[in-house]
């Protein structure tokens, strides 16, 4: 059982059940996008996969082991999460913020090691931020700032990378830039990527595997062509739409009717 799996997962905030009896295997080494209407439980599912919330029933396994049975730090070395609204400390530079991704690898009072520096340099290079390392994060554009957070997650050097709506607030070119970066990281570094997304057509373009959720359940999963059908869109979103082939990539393109 390799990779990240949810087995019969039930998630709730206090008594309100958000996800019920969900079973899902996220393909290792692929880019997976989780889609669904607002409030369908996709962010909650992502948090459970990242060990941030404890399931009411069922379990999440990482390479076959219950993720809650593993120590926090051990999980943090294998699985990274970019939350929806992380906070950049006032006055911090790009380089210093990315360095914080090394936290799970550093000892209590240990200094900054050569391995730490190599991981940071690689993360900055992969996200095209090497020249901006000394700049305050507050000075960057929204797209650059999102790249900084991705670089932080890269410096964490985890095989699994989870992202909660990484393209929200970004304009279209920056959305494409972030998604292209994620796919490149997947192709070049073999990291498994799971991201919650809103834009269906962009998800179809950049993800290998789609998971469509509605009302706390998985409605459909598979390749973009398998998942994004007019019937599934009607069921999940109540949306009447045509699905045509994207003239650029040939992937499904959703056109609301």
């Amino acid at each position: 059982m390799t990779g990240l799996r949810a087995e019969n997962l039930t998630l709730a905030y206090d008594r309100r059940i958000v996800v019920e009896g969900l079973t899902l295997a996220l393909p290792a080494g692929r880019v997976t996008a989780i889609l669904g209407p607002n409030g369908c439980g996709k962010s909650t599912l992502l948090k459970a996969l990242a060990r941030l919330i404890r399931p009411q029933a069922g379990r999440v396994t990482l390479d076959g082991e219950d993720i809650h049975a593993l120590p926090t730090r051990a999980v943090a070395r294998r699985l990274g999460l970019l939350p929806q609204a992380p906070i950049a400390p006032e006055g911090i530079t790009v380089g210093d913020l990315v360095a914080r991704g090394r936290a799970p690898w550093r000892g209590l009072l240990a200094g900054w090691s050569a391995a730490d520096e190599a991981a940071r340099a690689a993360a900055l290079a992969a996200t095209g931020l090497t020249d901006l390392a000394a700049r305050p994060v507050a000075d960057l554009s929204g797209g650059q700032r999102q790249r900084v957070w991705i670089a932080l997650a890269l410096a964490q050097q985890t095989e699994h990378l989870l992202l909660d709506e990484p393209t929200t607030w970004l304009d279209l070119p920056h959305q494409i830039e972030v998604l292209a970066l994620l796919r490149r990281l997947n192709r070049e570094q073999g990291r498994s990527i799971v991201t919650v997304l809103h834009d269906l057509s962009l998800a179809a373009r950049f993800a290998d595997h789609l998971v469509l959720m509605a009302a706390g359940r998985v409605l459909a999963e598979g390749t973009p062509e398998e998942v994004l059908t007019p019937g599934a869109l009607e069921d999940a979103f109540g949306l009447r739409a045509l699905v045509i082939a994207d003239p650029v990539t040939g992937t499904p393109l959703v056109v609301p009717a």
Partner: peptide, 14 residues
């Protein structure tokens, strides 16, 4: 330093 990034970011950093 990890906690400064927010609760969820801190926990996912271990």
């Amino acid at each position: 330093d990890a906690l400064a990034l927010g609760e969820e970011a801190a926990r996912s950093l271990g």
